[in-house]
Simulated scan of single mutants.
Amino acid sequence: MSSAPSVKDENIVWHQHAVDKHLRAELKHQKPAVLWFTGLSGAGKSTIAGALETRLAQLGYHTYLLDGDNVRHGLCSDLGFSEQDRRENIRRIGELSKLMADAGLIVLTAFISPHRVERQQVRDMMPDGEFIEVYVNTSLDVCESRDPKGLYKKARAGEIANFTGIDSAYEAPLEPEIDLPAGDASIDELVAQCLTALNERGIIRQ
């Protein structure tokens, strides 16, 4: 027997306002999008996303960058790093990204987001073409040699459990919209690749 509907199910509905996504985007002269940067720890997600946001701002576009560490200081400060908490972390970021895209923004996110099913769930929240998966394609060896936060060293020493790439799996995208060879190219080259892809999709107008 199914349970009775909750108060939320019965009484909370989505309110459509007169100022919509289309108008907000037109005022900004851009097309809303969510660029979802995924890759191993140390792959360069935040660095590349930050450099791309800087370039977009220089070109006059309206953006917002959501960084994995930053959101855990506020929005997701109540979450740990269990599988369940990591799934909830991605769900919250997906919902927030959707709202920011509804505001007409180009949203950049930098999260390991190791599981394909969770990235697909975020994609499914959004209209076709609005979710752009950006795979920061850096090998584990390169990431571990960089180890900017010393996390790989701690994981190898057993001080961190369930660390992606060491004792927890990372599922690389099968068909990302943008595949960045981040171990072999310069930041400028990678940003240029992203800008070309955004232009081809009509997100920006160069």
Rank of each mutant, 00 (worst) to 15 (best):
D67V: 15
I90G: 09
E177F: 08
H15C: 12
L108C: 10
V19P: 07
P173N: 04
G183I: 00
V71N: 11
S82A: 07
F131D: 05
L27V: 08
G104N: 02
C76Y: 12
E26D: 01
E10L: 15
D128E: 06
H17A: 14
M1V: 05
E83N: 10
Q84M: 04
A155V: 01
A51W: 14
R205L: 15
G68C: 08
N70R: 09
I90M: 09
L40I: 03
K21E: 07
Q58L: 14
L23G: 08
L105R: 09
L105N: 13
R55D: 05
V142D: 00
A157W: 01
Y170T: 02
C143R: 08
G42I: 00
L99K: 08
G74Y: 15
L198A: 00
E175V: 11
V142T: 11
I12G: 02
W36L: 09
S3I: 06
V7F: 12
Y170A: 00
D78W: 10
I106A: 03
I12P: 13
L23A: 05
P5D: 00
I178G: 06
V122W: 13
D69I: 11
L52M: 00
E130T: 11
N11K: 14
R86T: 15
G202V: 03
R116C: 10
D141R: 00
A110N: 10
L180W: 04
G50W: 04
S77F: 09
A49E: 07
A43Y: 08
S186L: 06
R201D: 07
G183W: 03
V117P: 01
E144I: 01
A110V: 09
Q206I: 15
L52P: 05
K21L: 12
I203F: 07
A182R: 07
R87E: 11
K153W: 01
R156F: 01
V191H: 07
